[in-house]
Amino acid sequence: MGFFLETMIGGLMTGMLYSLVALGFVLIFKASGVFNFAQGAMVLFAALAMARFSEWIPAALHIESKLLGNLLAFVGAMAVMVAAAWLIERLVLRKLVNQGEITLLMATLGVTHFLDGVGQTVFGNDIYKIDVGMPKDPIFLLESMFEGGVLVNQEDIFAALIAAALVALLSLFFQKTATGRALRAVADDHQAAQSIGIPLSRIWVIVWSVAGFVALVAGIIWGSKLGVQFSLSLVALKALPVIILGGLTSVPGAILGGLIIGVGEKLSEVYIGPFFGGGIEIWFAYVLALLFLLVRPQGLFGEKIIDRV
């Protein structure tokens, strides 16, 4: 039982990180109707900026405090993501208003390759580390209930708590602030939102900036766990089956979908993987998403589309 709980807890914590990346997809799609295929590249780009700024800024300003250096690096990386959001809206989205979905998807594919190229040119293509002080030593929990206790990585606990806090803050932002309500109005109907004075271009910059902030936090956490390397964008794409499960327009769906996939892939790898030679964790999420597309294409919390003729 203890080993089962270890596996399940590890899956839940990984699932929270998947949910964090998936939130970027959901936020942009809700506010602009754009399926942002570049979200994985944004995670990588933000992580690269954070990793390199945490080296460059303390060296340039002769800062010895690690906390202050990381804080300034975070501010610098966030400024880069806001600038990227402004450029994407000004140079890409503004030119493609009212264009078809496939056109917008191809535009985000172009943004993906652009961010990959610029990231490699500006920040380099080595493997970099991000050290924000999260403890990495494992600890034993529930020793009084199970013999030997349950082994849990402290870094996973901190990462899951950070992801959960960010999800809660984003939910409050959407529900309680005027800007959040404006974002939801734009998501419901672009033309109606414009007719009551909501500036569409400003809203798009805000939502891409928020998605950039989410990508930065996700990039820091994943970079701390795995190192910042170009395979990080592929890890971030695990969020695609998450939003297929949860629904492309649902924030709660992104959370639940991430938890389902995180737990499912860990349990399947441990308990089913030995019968198939392992490797189930790599493709489990995509097969589960395919099955959902066949049975419930809109996802668990997605809006069911009914076409009347």
Rank of each mutant, 00 (worst) to 15 (best):
L232N: 12
I139S: 14
A236M: 09
I261W: 04
G278E: 02
L151P: 03
L67Q: 11
R184V: 05
E143L: 11
L27R: 08
S209P: 12
Y286W: 05
A165S: 13
G100A: 15
V26H: 14
L245F: 00
L294A: 09
G24E: 04
Q191Y: 10
V263C: 06
G253A: 01
D188H: 04
R94V: 09
G76N: 13
F173W: 00
L234S: 15
L23D: 01
M8W: 06
F114T: 04
V295I: 10
L291V: 13
A47F: 01
M42R: 08
D116I: 15
G219M: 02
A192C: 09
S209W: 03
A49E: 11
G148S: 09
L290D: 13
I206A: 14
A38K: 05
F114C: 00
G133F: 00
Q175M: 13
A159Q: 01
V295Y: 07
L232G: 06
S54F: 00
L48E: 11
V92Y: 13
R184E: 10
G277A: 06
I244N: 09
A193T: 04
A79S: 12
L288N: 02
N98W: 04
M106A: 10
F35V: 10
G273W: 05
V309R: 08
V167S: 13
N125H: 07
G257L: 01
M8Q: 05
D307F: 14
L27Q: 08
L23T: 01
T108W: 09
F74H: 12
V34S: 04
G262L: 02
F173M: 03
W56G: 04
H190I: 07
A211C: 11
A47V: 04
G247M: 00
I203M: 14
M106F: 13
G117K: 00
I272Y: 03
I157R: 03
K304H: 08
M42T: 06
R202P: 10
L20K: 02
T108Y: 09
G246K: 01
I9S: 08
M8P: 01
G100K: 12
I63A: 07
